[in-house]
Simulated assay, not measured.
Amino acid sequence: MFELVEPIKTERLVLRPFAARDEEDMLEFESREDVARYLFNEPRTREDNARELAVRLGQTALRKEKDTLMTAVELDGKVIGYVLLVWLSEEHRQGEFGYVLHPGFHGKGYATEAAAEMLRIGFEKLSLHRIIGRCDPRNGGSAKVMERLGLRKEAHFVESEIFKGEWGGELHYAVLAAEWRAQHETA
């Protein structure tokens, strides 16, 4: 079990539970077509955004299988995205992580810095054995983040599902706890 009670501070960012005050910052990136392009949702309206924020307010702990930890990524007091960790299987000690960042903040290493904390929580706090990440094959930036974090590409599913009205694929990446530890013992 893991509950986020204190914000996590990285070199440049603060990861913390979402708060009601984040609604405008969240809408700023969640309403963008270029953000929703590779996500299952469409760009969020103000009403959609408010409903999603209400859900995120309760996603502060991983107590049991299928729970999601969702943290706001804050830079200098502004929410610029989010990172998440889903506890997929307690028995098999599996998790999945993900991230979304405002395009205005791409290319600066923020997604890598924030996502590394989700991996750390999964391996060090939940004792997960394996964590996966998935992305659309057209989303080269997301694939590069996972590679920088030390995940290995395990699969490329080609035209495996209808996604937003067209055939879409999916890249699957993964890292094992032993691999994560080996990467961070030498760092």
Score class of each variant (00 low, 15 high):
residue 97 F to A: 15
residue 91 E to K: 15
residue 98 G to R: 05
residue 105 F to S: 04
residue 71 T to D: 00
residue 83 V to I: 11
residue 98 G to F: 06
residue 106 H to K: 00
residue 105 F to L: 03
residue 96 E to R: 12
residue 101 L to Q: 10
residue 101 L to K: 02
residue 97 F to D: 11
residue 99 Y to T: 14
residue 85 L to Q: 05
residue 107 G to N: 08
residue 85 L to S: 00
residue 108 K to M: 11
residue 103 P to T: 06
residue 87 W to E: 07
residue 94 Q to W: 10
residue 84 L to Y: 12
residue 104 G to S: 08
residue 97 F to W: 11
residue 71 T to R: 01
residue 95 G to M: 06
residue 64 K to T: 12
residue 90 E to G: 08
residue 85 L to M: 03
residue 94 Q to S: 12
residue 64 K to L: 07
residue 102 H to V: 02
residue 67 D to G: 08
residue 77 G to A: 08
residue 86 V to Q: 12
residue 69 L to N: 06
residue 107 G to C: 10
residue 76 D to R: 15
residue 99 Y to I: 11
residue 76 D to K: 13
residue 102 H to D: 15
residue 99 Y to A: 12
residue 84 L to S: 11
residue 92 H to P: 06
residue 93 R to S: 14
residue 96 E to K: 08
residue 64 K to Q: 15
residue 89 S to M: 09
residue 84 L to I: 02
residue 74 E to G: 01
residue 66 K to F: 09
residue 67 D to Q: 09
residue 98 G to L: 05
residue 84 L to Q: 14
residue 109 G to D: 11
residue 104 G to F: 08
residue 101 L to P: 04
residue 84 L to F: 12
residue 99 Y to W: 12
residue 81 G to H: 03
residue 102 H to N: 15
residue 90 E to I: 04
residue 105 F to R: 03
residue 100 V to N: 04
residue 95 G to E: 04
residue 82 Y to N: 11
residue 71 T to L: 14
residue 76 D to E: 15
residue 81 G to Q: 02
residue 88 L to V: 14
residue 88 L to E: 14
residue 92 H to V: 10
residue 64 K to W: 04
residue 80 I to K: 02
residue 97 F to S: 11
residue 90 E to V: 10
residue 88 L to W: 04
residue 73 V to A: 02
residue 69 L to H: 05
residue 100 V to G: 01
residue 87 W to K: 06
residue 92 H to E: 14
residue 90 E to K: 12
residue 104 G to C: 06
residue 76 D to S: 11
residue 94 Q to L: 15
residue 66 K to C: 08
residue 75 L to F: 05
residue 104 G to Y: 08
residue 70 M to V: 14
residue 76 D to C: 01
residue 73 V to M: 05
residue 70 M to R: 08
residue 83 V to N: 02
residue 75 L to S: 00
residue 88 L to K: 13
residue 88 L to P: 03
residue 82 Y to I: 02
residue 74 E to F: 05
residue 94 Q to E: 13
residue 93 R to I: 06
residue 98 G to H: 10
residue 74 E to V: 13
residue 80 I to M: 03
residue 98 G to P: 07
residue 104 G to N: 13
residue 95 G to A: 10
residue 97 F to R: 06
residue 102 H to W: 10
residue 92 H to Q: 14
residue 78 K to N: 07
residue 74 E to R: 00
residue 69 L to E: 01
residue 93 R to G: 05
residue 96 E to H: 06
residue 69 L to C: 05
residue 101 L to H: 04
residue 72 A to G: 01
residue 98 G to N: 07
residue 76 D to V: 02
residue 68 T to E: 11
residue 78 K to I: 07
residue 88 L to Y: 00
residue 79 V to E: 00
residue 97 F to T: 15
residue 68 T to I: 12
residue 109 G to V: 10
residue 65 E to Q: 13
residue 66 K to Q: 14
residue 77 G to C: 09
residue 65 E to W: 09
residue 64 K to F: 04
residue 95 G to V: 09
residue 95 G to Q: 06
residue 69 L to P: 01
residue 94 Q to Y: 13
residue 106 H to E: 09
residue 97 F to L: 15
residue 83 V to P: 00
residue 98 G to D: 05
